[in-house]
Simulated assay, not measured.
Amino acid sequence: MIHLETQSIQEGEVNNLVQDVPGQFFNMGRTIYLRFQEKLSGQDAAMVTFKINGNGEVQLTRQAGQMRSRMFFIANRKIEARYQTPYGMLPLETVTPKMSVSVSEHPDSGQISIDYELLSNGRKLGQYKIRLHFTA
């Protein structure tokens, strides 16, 4: 089971979303994968995958129809991201000022907390927060 809380702030507008969804958990060596469907009102469901590396780096992939994004999060780093639209690739960057990842065994469970900014061509598009708790 996955408990997901997200917050986005874009142009002064705040959006909060809380979801409890079933998901899949895979452990391959020191890498953990979480996969689930995110349901947004008025939109197609998106397939979401979190990849958590053994060193604490996180990759987030979302795909809904022809839209696909891949973002990378490392604390205190700016990293290129990819956002594929039907009209082509949109260059993005993530800046992650605050992030923590905690994973436990027996039972497999964990928490991911990421605060990040999304940039396009040096312009800030918004501020975002992800709070994810999972239990396998």
Rank of each mutant, 00 (worst) to 15 (best):
M1E: 10
M1N: 09
M1H: 09
M1T: 09
H3R: 14
L4K: 03
E5F: 13
T6C: 01
T6K: 02
Q7I: 12
Q7S: 10
S8D: 09
I9D: 06
Q10P: 07
G12N: 01
E13S: 12
N16C: 08
L17S: 14
Q19T: 01
D20S: 15
D20C: 04
V21Q: 02
P22D: 11
P22T: 10
G23Q: 04
G23F: 00
Q24Y: 06
F26P: 00
R30G: 10
R30T: 14
R30L: 13
T31P: 05
I32V: 15
I32M: 09
L34F: 07
R35I: 10
F36W: 03
Q37N: 12
Q37C: 06
S41K: 10
G42V: 08
A45E: 12
A46I: 06
M47A: 11
T49L: 06
T49Q: 13
I52Y: 00
I52T: 04
N53C: 14
N53D: 15
Q59V: 14
Q59R: 12
Q59N: 15
L60E: 04
L60A: 06
R62Y: 04
A64K: 05
R68K: 11
S69W: 03
M71S: 03
M71E: 11
M71Q: 07
F72K: 07
I74S: 10
I74N: 08
I74L: 15
A75P: 00
A75W: 02
A75Q: 14
N76G: 08
N76I: 01
E80A: 15
A81T: 04
R82L: 15
Y83F: 13
P86V: 11
Y87D: 11
Y87H: 14
G88N: 06
M89V: 12
M89N: 05
M89T: 10
L90I: 07
L90R: 10
P91A: 05
E93S: 07
T94S: 13
V95E: 12
V95N: 09
T96V: 07
T96Q: 02
T96C: 09
S100V: 11
S100Q: 15
V101C: 09
V101W: 05
V101E: 10
V101G: 02
V103A: 01
S104Y: 15
E105W: 08
H106G: 08
H106E: 14
H106W: 13
P107R: 02
G110I: 03
Q111N: 07
I112N: 00
S113T: 10
S113I: 07
I114C: 01
Y116W: 05
Y116C: 09
N121A: 10
G122Q: 03
Q127F: 07
Y128S: 02
Y128I: 00
K129F: 11
K129S: 07
I130H: 01
H133W: 12
F134R: 00
F134N: 04
T135A: 14
A136M: 00
